[in-house]
Design a protein around this nucleic acid. Structure first.
Length: 115
RNA sequence: UGAGCAUUUCGGGCAGUCGCGUGCCUUUUGGCACGAGGAAAGUCCGGGCUCCGCAGGGCAGGGUGCCGGAUAACGUCCGGUGAAGGCGACUUCAAGGAAAGUGCAACAGAAAUAUACCGCCAUAUUUAUUAUGGUAAGGAUGGAAAGGCGAGGUAAGAGCUCACCGACCCUUUAGGUAACUAUUGGGUCCUGUAAACCCCACCCGGAGCAACAUCGUUAAGGGGAGUUAAGUUGGCCCGACAGUCCCCGGGUAGAUGGCUUGAGCCAUACAGUAAUGUAUGGCCUAGAUAGAUGAUUGCCUGCAAAACAGAACCCGGCUUACAGAUUUGCUCAUUUA
RNA sequence: GGAGAAGUACUCAAGUUGGCCGAAGAGGCGCCCCUGCUAAGGGUGUAGGUCGGGUAACCGGCGCGAGAGUUCAAAUCUCUCCUUCUCCG
């Protein structure tokens, strides 16, 4: 299994925000933009408004874990940015996981194999 | 048994599966080791380190403020003194100077550092009173009103005089390194405020790892000031520096080092009341750069795995947040012996 | 990560050599005029939060981000905490 490629440039983030399509959930907001070179990238945004460093780190870890588990089911070649919303504070992994799957299905980047 | 005061340590443990960061070994797969805190937080102090001009002097500015000690240093810590609170164990305290000077004290009150509204007394006029003078005992105001109380004294009064008490200044003796405590004699009777200016003593150059160093990338030039009196530091001055470039706006791409062996941790012995220091032996314990600890299952302790919370150059403190468990010593009350 | 600035009625805010300060002023709200009606415009005056008391007029306490301290007295001075905003390469 290859490593998860992350987005680490501010300009790329801004491009995805302005040009990508977005769907919003109670827990998360997901922006998707097809990448030019065919590599999937993941970016996670957690605002400072959500809470202190522990809460923000917890949210990032839950999102990253959910992406890692479901990476096989996501069709490649997309830049995906996941933004955590306020309801994510205090929830457990299962809620975050189902929320992410729901949004990825809306974006139709979910290639269901197991269902 | 109840109530309370101080204080120590911990902040779940073990195992399985998938996954993350760093290092090492293999190098296609992979394997092994290590991997957040008592506050990592707030950035409130102090220091190391780096650069700024060699890190100097004065003014300004800022900080600290009982005494002695500890320390690299501190606004921290330890031991003592004093004051306040508590029956007590004990706790709290920015605790120098108001008798060097200046300012301020609203409203109220007659008057706020100086006085005469009412009252009391004397004299004159007159007997309703009015005027002048004396007075700080009594009233009233205020947070604060000329040290308190008694006796003498007086026209009425007053530290005006005296006894006792209190405060302050000088002083004698004893104890203590000192703050200070006890004490002898003399003098004085003075509002509060220095977290108002100030005085006294001591301390402080500035900026910060987004510092800084090395290697590289982009680029395009334009405008302004200056020519030995301008520039450079932190506000100013002096001194110093370099000996031609400086400022404004615009453009560009980052990588590596700094980055963890340190005033380090643990154990023992000795010195010291203690903070702490010295010696010997052992140990190596995160180092990321959109930023590593998560998901899940089982067992154990427990009512319940459950609080506050995530290193970002590194240390010493302080402050604030914190569910629950826990060590040791002491005080008071009640009962029984 | 580091360095700073600010917080006052519903909103924007003035006030900080400590005292007559629940706090000037503007918007907003509310009343009147104008209009067939409304908006805009003009004029005028009032109350300002919260708790307690009172039939009411009104009176008293607490309140200038929160909590302590200094002082006779704190929006103002000092300390600690909270929130918001700005700057750095």
């Amino acid at each position: 299994m290859k490593k998860t490629v992350t987005i680490n440039k501010n300009t790329l983030f801004r491009k995805i925000y302005s040009k990508g399509t977005s769907y919003v959930n109670k827990y998360l907001a997901v922006y998707v933009l097809p990448s030019k070179d065919g590599i999937s990238r993941l970016g996670i945004t957690v605002s400072k408004k959500l809470g202190c460093a522990v809460i923000r780190n917890r949210a990032k870890r839950l999102i990253r874990e959910s992406y890692r588990i479901n990476e096989e089911n996501i069709s490649g070649g997309y830049n995906i940015v996941v933004v955590a919303r306020k309801m994510v504070v205090g929830t457990d992994f299962h809620h975050v996981n189902s929320a992410l799957i729901h949004l990825l299905k809306k974006h139709s980047v979910w290639t269901a194999e197991n269902e």
